[in-house]
């Protein structure tokens, strides 16, 4: 069950219109390393995790990513709120405008729609947590790239916040991976899959 809280995790107050910036930032909504992809990845992976600790962490980070999606959407919305047809024509927003007007729709900066193929849920704890380490790094690079391109502080402040969150999440997924490793045989972490080969769990170390 989820409950909504009527505020953004980080406040967004953008006082000007810039469809070109919106077109770049929207990638963190529906792009390959975006917040929607992040949230769906973690919330999908958690069910079969072999420990409550990992399942709990994936729930909390997956939930926070939903909040990040809302921050990104708020930025896109505010950057296009007062969009005129002339601005839509000239600022690289024309193709988006034709299909969505000013509506929010998850796509990458290049127009490619959101796609679940952008993330994995592999049913193997080491694999999934390693994927998550990479996912946080990829999202960090998108924020790095956005910060190089966008000079305005009203947009940069939320982007800087979101970038730091990627680093914190990387640390937490790393710690979760260490905890999973503790439950496995250190001579060969790959001898069995702790999410599938349940018979091994009865004999060896129990997951936390």
């Amino acid at each position: 069950m989820w409950t909504y809280e009527k505020r953004l995790q980080f406040p967004v107050k953008i006082t000007y219109t810039c469809p070109r910036t919106a077109q770049m930032i929207i990638s963190q909504y529906g792009g390959p390393d975006g917040e929607l992809s992040a949230s769906m990845r973690y919330l999908a992976q958690r069910y079969t995790m072999p420990s409550k600790e990992a399942g709990g962490l994936l729930t909390d980070i997956g939930t926070e990513e939903l909040g990040h999606m809302e921050i990104i959407c708020a930025m896109v919305y505010q950057l296009t709120k007062n969009l005129t047809i002339e601005e839509a024509k000239t600022a690289g927003f024309d193709a988006y405008y034709i299909d969505h007007t000013k509506g929010l729709w998850p796509q990458a900066a290049g127009g490619i729609p959101f796609n679940a193929c952008e993330f994995q849920s592999k049913g193997d704890a080491i694999t999934d947590l390693t994927e998550n380490l990479a996912a946080e790094q990829k999202a960090r690079v998108v924020y790095d790239n956005l910060l190089r391109m966008i000079p305005d502080p009203e947009v940069r402040e939320p982007l800087k916040f979101l970038r730091t969150r990627e680093i914190v999440h990387f640390q937490r997924f790393g710690e979760a991976l260490e905890k999973i490793k503790d439950t496995l045989d250190e001579k060969n972490f790959y001898y069995y899959n702790p999410e599938f080969d349940l018979s091994f769990l009865k004999q060896g170390k129990q997951p936390l």
Binding site: Y143, K160, F161, R163, T164, V168, Q171
Partner: peptide
Amino acid sequence: IGTIFPELNLPF
């Protein structure tokens, strides 16, 4: 900044 932990603040 985006974290309560100074040791995780690694700016770009």
